[in-house]
C-alpha cells in the first residue's frame, strides 16, 4: 500500500542531517564516562599507596615488629600494640551487627513480602530517614539517652556501667546501620521475580515458606552484600563510637566497660595528639591500614561464602 506523501515534504526536507552534537555524542560520552569511572579507581589506588607507604615508614621509624603491633596490648608509644583497638573495634562492630542484621533482615522481609503497599510506602522512607541522621547525633544520643538507660537497667543488678561503654556504642551503631541492611535487602528481595513466588504458592506453600525458602535464598547475594556494607560501616564508624564508647583501650569481654576503637584512636591522633613525622603520628597510617585490611578481608570472605550458597536466577 502506498502511503500518502506528506504535503510540503518536497520543498522542505523533514529529516535534516544529524547535528554535530549527535554525531560526536558517542565518543564524547564514552570518554566522559570512562574518566568518571577512572576517578574512583585512581582514588582507591592512591589511598592504598599512601597507606602502604606510610605504614612501611611507620614500621621503619618505630622499630615495632608486625606481630608486636597487631598483638601487643600496650597502645602507648613506644610499644604501639594495637590489639586493644582491634578488640574494641571488633566488639562494637559485632555487637552492632548482632542488633542490626536480624532486625534489618526481618524488616526487609516484612516490607517486601508482608506489608500492604500503603504501609510499605510510609515505612520504607521512614527507615531510610534513619540513615540520614548525622552520626554525631547518634553519638550524643548514646551519651544522654542510651547510657543512662543502660545504667538504670544494669546498676540495680549490681553491674557497674561506665559512663563511656561499648554496649551503648553497639546499640547506637546498630540502629544506625539497620536502614542499610533493610533498605538494600528489601530492594533485592523485591527484585526476586514474581514468577518464582507464584510457582511456590502454586505448590501449596505458605507465605512464610515462600519468603524464607524461595525469596530469601534467591536474594541472598544482595542480602549478604548489604550485611557486608553494614558491618564495614560499623567497623569504620567514628563519631558515634568516640562519644559512646570513649577512649579507654581495654581488652575486656564486658560490654559495660569503656573501649577504644581504631577509629577513635585515629581521631585522637589527628586531633593534635602527635606532631608530624613522629612514630606516633605515623602510627595512624598503620592503624588505618589495619582497618582497610579488615574490611577488605570481610569483602573477600563474603565473596567466598556467596559463591558457595547463593542461588542464581535469571
Amino acid at each position: 500500500m502506498n502511503l500518502p506523501v506528506p504535503s510540503g515534504s518536497v520543498e522542505r526536507p523533514r529529516w535534516p542531517a544529524p547535528s554535530r552534537f549527535r554525531r560526536y555524542q558517542g565518543p564524547v560520552m564514552l570518554s566522559l564516562l570512562a574518566i568518571c569511572a577512572l576517578v574512583t579507581v585512581l582514588t582507591t589506588i592512591g589511598i592504598v599507596a599512601v597507606l602502604g607507604l606510610e605504614t612501611i615508614h611507620f614500621f621503619r621509624e618505630s622499630h615495632v615488629s608486625l606481630p608486636a603491633f597487631v598483638f601487643g596490648t600496650e597502645v602507648d608509644p613506644p610499644k604501639f600494640g594495637i590489639f586493644p583497638l582491634i578488640w574494641g573495634t571488633v566488639m562494637v562492630a559485632a555487637g552492632a551487627s548482632l542488633i542490626a542484621l536480624p532486625i534489618g533482615l526481618l524488616s526487609a522481609l516484612y516490607l517486601s513480602e508482608y506489608a500492604p503497599r500503603r504501609v510499605r510506602a510510609v515505612l520504607k522512607p521512614a527507615l531510610e530517614l534513619l540513615a540520614g541522621i548525622p552520626t554525631i547525633v547518634y553519638g550524643f544520643l548514646a551519651l544522654v539517652l542510651v547510657t543512662p538507660l543502660l545504667k538504670a537497667c544494669f546498676e540495680p543488678l549490681g553491674l557497674k556501667v561506665d559512663s563511656y561503654n561499648a554496649l551503648s556504642a553497639c546499640v547506637v551503631v546498630g540502629v544506625m546501620i539497620i536502614p542499610m541492611v533493610s533498605s538494600l535487602s528489601e530492594d533485592v528481595l523485591s527484585a526476586v521475580p514474581r514468577s518464582l513466588r507464584e510457582a511456590a504458592y502454586g505448590l501449596g506453600a505458605t507465605k512464610f515458606e515462600v519468603s524464607t525458602r524461595i525469596v530469601l535464598p534467591a536474594g541472598l547475594s544482595g542480602v549478604a552484600a548489604s550485611f557486608i556494607l553494614a558491618i564495614s560501616r560499623a567497623v569504620g564508624e567514628t563519631m558515634a563510637v568516640v562519644l559512646a564508647a570513649g577512649r579507654m583501650p581495654n581488652v575486656t569481654a564486658n560490654p559495660l566497660r569503656s573501649v577504644e576503637t581504631m577509629t577513635a584512636y585515629i581521631v585522637a591522633i589527628t586531633g593534635g595528639d602527635a606532631s608530624y613525622g613522629t612514630p606516633k603520628y605515623l602510627s595512624l597510617f598503620a592503624v588505618g591500614m589495619t582497618l582497610f585490611v579488615m574490611t577488605l578481608g570481610l569483602n573477600i570472605l563474603s565473596g567466598l561464602i556467596l559463591r558457595r550458597f547463593r542461588e542464581v536466577y535469571n
Binding site: S195, E198, A199, A200, G202, A218, V312
Partner: peptide
C-alpha cells in the same frame, strides 16, 4: 505457568 519458572 506461561514462562517456565523453575526455582534457582
Amino acid at each position: 505457568f506461561q514462562k517456565p519458572n523453575p526455582f534457582p
